[in-house]
Design a protein around this nucleic acid. Structure first.
Lengths: 229, 229
DNA sequence: TTAATAATACTACTATGGTAGTTCGCCTTA
DNA sequence: TAAGGCGAACTACCATAGTAGTATTATTAA
C-alpha cells in the first residue's frame, strides 16, 4: 500500500476511500484480510479519521465487515449478493434500453460508436484490462444518455461483489468477441429504435457474465463466502 | 431537537444518523435549513465525530448537501430525483411481484394478510401516520418474501426524496381506500399466481403516488428545488 | 495435562484540539 | 453613495488522545 499525496482537490477521506476500494476490487486486498484503522492510517500516511470514514462507506457497500471493538475484514464474495445485483441490473437496464429507443441524443450515440470502435482495437491488442473499463463505459453511456445518472451510481454500489467476479474472469482467457458483437447489436437496435429486440439482447448479454461462475468458485474457493453453492 | 440517551446496543453515530434522518424525512428539518456539526452536536449532547459520520452518510443519500469549509444544508426536494426513483422502483417491483407469483412462502403470505387487515382498521380510525408505515411495510414484505432484502434497502436510499413528498400528501386528505383496495388486489393476484395481471396492477399502484405532485408544489413551493417544473 | 480464570494487548468508538478554507460585514477610499 | 479591500467569525476537515469493549495469552489450580 502506497502513501497517497493529496495534491488533488479531493479530500483525504475520499482519497483513502478510493484507494481502498480499488485495492479491494482488484483483489489486491483479498477477501478475509484483516484491516485496522491504525495500520492502514500508517501505511497511507494519513490520520485515523479519514481512514475510519472510508471504512464506514465501504462497509455500507458491504465490501468491508466491521465488528465493533474487534476488527474489520474484507468481505468474501457473496454469490447471493451477486445474483441479486444481477436481478436488479437486468430489470433496470432492460427498461433503460427501451427508453433509449424512444429518445437518445446524437451526441451519446456518437460516444457509443466511438466506444465500440475502441473496443475492437483493444480486443485485437489483447488489452483485457482496458476492455474491462470500456465494457463498463459502454453500459454507463446507456444510462447517461437516458439521463439516469443516479440509477447508474446506485447500481455501481450493488455491483461491487459482482465486479470482483469480473476481475477473476479477466485472468481466464475470455471470449470478448461475443461481448463486442452484442454491444454492436445493441447499438444498432437502439439506432433503429427496435425496443423489443434490444430488450431481448440486453438480457442475454447480462446473463452471459454469470455463466462461468462455477469454474471460478472451483479455481478460487478461498475468495468466496463458504455457504451454499 | 432532543438529546439522545444511548441505552440501546446501537452506536452513537448510528443513533444521530437515524435521529437526523427522521427529522429530515418528517420535514421537521425543512429543506434549505443550515446545520452545523458543532450546533447539532450540542443539541444532541454528543461529540462532533458521530455527527460528522451522520452528515456524511446523509449526504451520500442526498438528503444533505455539504459545502466544505462553508456549511451543510438540508437538500430541497428534487423532482427529477423523485421521478428517477419511481422509474427504478417500478421496474424492480414489477419483477418482484412476478417472482412472488412463482414462489412466496405461506408465512409471508400470512404477514401480508395481517398487514392489510391492520390497514383497514387504521384507515377507519383515520390514523394516517400509521397508514404510511403500513403502506411501507406492505411493499417491504413483497421484497422480503422474495428474499430480496438488499434490493429493498437500496430502494429506500433512492426513495428518500420521494418519501418527503409522501409526507406532504399526508397533510392533504387522501383517498387511502383506493390504495388499500389495490393492496388487496395485489395480494389476491399473488395468491392465485396471476403474474401478468399483478404486474399491471402494481404499475398502476406506483404511479398513483405522483399524481398530486403539481398540487403539492403549488402549496409548498419553499420545499422544492427551484429549477424546472 | 487440562480447564478455568485473570491479565494484557488490541480493536473500533468517541471526544476534542487545531488548521485551512470560506463567508460576510465593516471600514476605508474614491 | 458606492465599491473594493481587510479582518474577524465561522465552517468542515484532519490529527490525536482517551475509553470501553473484545480476543488472546499466560497463569494457576485441579
Amino acid at each position: 500500500m502506497q502513501s497517497i499525496p493529496n495534491r488533488s482537490n479531493r479530500s483525504t477521506g475520499e482519497l483513502t476511500y478510493e484507494t481502498l476500494k480499488r485495492l479491494i476490487l482488484n483483489l489486491e486486498l483479498k477477501p478475509g484480510t484483516k484491516l485496522s484503522e491504525k495500520e492502514v492510517a500508517e501505511k497511507l500516511q494519513v490520520s485515523r479519521t479519514p481512514v475510519r470514514e472510508a471504512f464506514l462507506k465501504l462497509s455500507q457497500e458491504e465490501l468491508l465487515e466491521i465488528y465493533p471493538q474487534s476488527g474489520t475484514f474484507v468481505s468474501f464474495i457473496d454469490l447471493e449478493h451477486v445474483e441479486e445485483a444481477r436481478f436488479v441490473r437486468e430489470n433496470i437496464e432492460r427498461a433503460i434500453v427501451r427508453e433509449a429507443c424512444k429518445e437518445f441524443s446524437e451526441d451519446y450515440l456518437f460516444q457509443l460508436e466511438t466506444n465500440i470502435a475502441t473496443q475492437d482495437l483493444s480486443s485485437n491488442k489483447g488489452n483485457y484490462s482496458r476492455m474491462y473499463q470500456l465494457d463498463d463505459e459502454f453500459h454507463r453511456l446507456l444510462f447517461y444518455g437516458c439521463g439516469k445518472v443516479r440509477s447508474w451510481n446506485m447500481l455501481q454500489q450493488m455491483n461491487s461483489h459482482f465486479n470482483r467476479l469480473r476481475i477473476l474472469r479477466l485472468s481466464s482467457s475470455l471470449d470478448w468477441d461475443i461481448i463486442i458483437s452484442q454491444h454492436k447489436e445493441i447499438f444498432n437496435l437502439i439506432k433503429n429504435k427496435e425496443s423489443d429486440k434490444v430488450e431481448q439482447v440486453i438480457i442475454k448479454h447480462l446473463r452471459l457474465a454469470v455463466f462461468e461462475k462455477e469454474i471460478l468458485i472451483e479455481r478460487y474457493p478461498e475468495y468466496f463466502n463458504p455457504q451454499k453453492s
